[in-house]
Design a binder for these strands. Structure first.
Ligand SMILES: [Mn+2]
Ligand SMILES: [Mn+2]
Ligand SMILES: [Zn+2]
Ligand SMILES: [Zn+2]
Lengths: 136, 136
DNA sequence: AATAAAAGTGAGAATGATTATCATTATTAG
DNA sequence: CTAATAATGATAATCATTCTCACTTTTATT
């Protein structure tokens, strides 16, 4: 399943793991170029896909048109800003019982393998901006 | 907030509401053309955005690269096939307490306005295919 | 009704993220 | 060392979405 990684793939993986902000392919590319200056964008895309395939990382997509990568593979949830699109980790566990999940899965007919809760709302920065607008 | 809709917008809204499969912009375009033959794709995109803005419909995005529209605006959850990408409604309610949600939201700092649970797994069709493959 | 301003429209061009191609360069196996 | 194999990166192609803009339709004003 998990093949051993070459230097480029390892550099990409290190970068995604080190980042705490769910980087895009382009952000990964820029950061990785610092340490592997000749790497191409196509390789970054190829490597990201293979890392996802091998379950080293996860792919996330929400409203904006670029997909983001998550080096945090243990199951966790996300909060998404409805204003600026910021994608934040939820640092606490939301206790959904297996029964609840199984029941919902049964109702759709899918063979449940995982789940993710998405919270939507204004992030702190956008919340602040909103307040200032209302004061003027 | 909700302005009254002209004939094109109404046709688009009717189509999204009638569809039970979270159609893409292109699918909406094809279906709407049947009744409003001269409508352009750009108008469909423009109208879909304005319907989202006015909260008549919702925009959904997951792993594939096209975004989908949901005429079902009341809060509900989705099941996503990890094999073929099918996006299904979860027809039952998953009882998350407001406390659980609030606590998670507090932990991220966002001003919670909504949430969505996503269940991942193999859809019935893909599950079936998998079984047949293993039998050969 | 006549006229002027405003809003909506659709064809087509432009954009931008992602993917495909392919000749070249590492890496591995024998 | 040599042949087979895998990885690479520059570049072109793809394709969903957005932008542009001249034109039409609707709405407001006289
Ligand atoms: Mn995350
Ligand atoms: Mn739905
Ligand atoms: Zn924000
Ligand atoms: Zn499926």
């Amino acid at each position: 399943m998990k093949e051993k990684l070459n230097a480029n793939a390892q550099a990409v993986l290190d970068m995604v793991r080190a980042a705490n902000n769910h980087p895009t392919a382009s952000e990964v590319y820029d950061a990785v170029k610092v340490v592997r200056s000749h790497i191409g964008l196509a390789s970054v895309y190829r490597i990201l896909h293979s890392l996802v395939e091998q379950k080293y990382i996860k792919e996330l997509r929400h409203s904006d048109d670029t997909c983001r990568y998550d080096g945090h593979i243990s199951r966790h949830d996300h909060a998404i800003c409805t204003e600026c699109g910021a994608l934040l980790d939820v640092p606490v566990d939301i206790p959904l019982t297996q029964e609840m999940l199984e029941q919902a899965a049964r109702a759709t007919g899918i063979e449940l393998s995982s789940h993710e809760l998405r919270l939507y709302g204004r992030c702190p920065a956008c919340s602040q901006k909103q307040k200032q607008l209302l004061q003027v």
